[in-house]
């Protein structure tokens, strides 16, 4: 119990002479000294007390909604019989060839874009590839109704009050777009519903937004 009291008071910064003497003379407590000092330093680090913004929980839930569980699980299955093994091996050779040809490289970043009150059931998982001169974007949009006739959905990348259009689409599903800026410089992604007309100003109808 003496070790417990000495360590507790040392950690709290109010160890008296008795406790300090104990900490010096007790081999077990001496071995603990570095950990106690590290803990005191760590407790004063703002990172220990920081919390993610409340909306991150919704972004996490939205981001998994389009991803099947275990999607990263590529454990091979065991095949018992040699004939089956040959057939599976042949299939794997073909499949790997197809994957090597068709599978895009891993994105440089991905972010969930939840629906706003204007489209509460919608969400999009946006993947981005940083390329020379801009960013290739792949959106997997779910729950968004088709754009009404005479209108389109438009994706924007925004920094402060500067908006750069990444292009338009009209329905949910996989949408590939390109924008000539980087998300590093334009971190907010959002989608508006825009009438097809000569007015280039934003409609203000915000349907999905990474900052929502």
């Amino acid at each position: 119990m003496r070790c417990d009291r000495a360590r507790t008071r040392y950690l709290a910064g109010d160890a008296g002479d008795d406790e300090l003497r104990h900490l010096q003379s007790c081999p077990s407590c001496r071995a603990e000294q570095t950990a106690l000092d590290t803990t005191r330093r760590t407790l004063a680090d703002p990172a220990i007390w920081a919390e993610p913004a409340p909306h991150i929980a919704d972004l996490v839930v939205a981001s998994i909604s389009g991803v099947p569980p275990g999607a990263g699980d590529s454990q091979p299955r065991r095949v018992a019989r040699w004939a089956g093994l040959v057939a599976v091996a042949a299939a794997i050779v073909i499949a790997v060839g197809v994957v090597l040809v068709q599978r895009p490289p891993q994105p440089d970043w991905e972010v969930a874009m939840p629906g706003t009150d204007a489209a509460p059931g919608s969400t999009a998982l946006v993947k981005g590839w940083n390329e020379k001169g801009g960013t290739r974007l792949l959106l997997n949009v779910t729950g968004l109704p088709d754009a009404p006739p005479g209108s389109v959905y438009e994706l924007w990348l925004t920094r402060d009050a500067v908006h750069v259009s990444a292009g338009t689409f009209t329905s949910a599903g996989d949408v590939e777009l390109w924008v000539g800026v980087s998300r590093r410089d334009y971190p907010r992604l959002w989608v508006t519903l825009e009438p097809v007309d000569e007015d280039e100003s934003l409609s203000g109808i915000n349907v999905m937004d990474t900052g929502y």
Binding site: A47, A112, P187
Partner: peptide
């Protein structure tokens, strides 16, 4: 993530990635 990166928005991005990757690996 914040201890490591010292940038709030990058740390939040890493939090999202953590749970997404955990979900992808949930069957294991």
């Amino acid at each position: 993530t914040y201890s490591a990166l010292r940038d709030r928005s990058l740390a939040e991005e890493a939090v999202q990635a953590t749970f997404l990757q955990a979900w992808r690996a949930s069957s294991r």
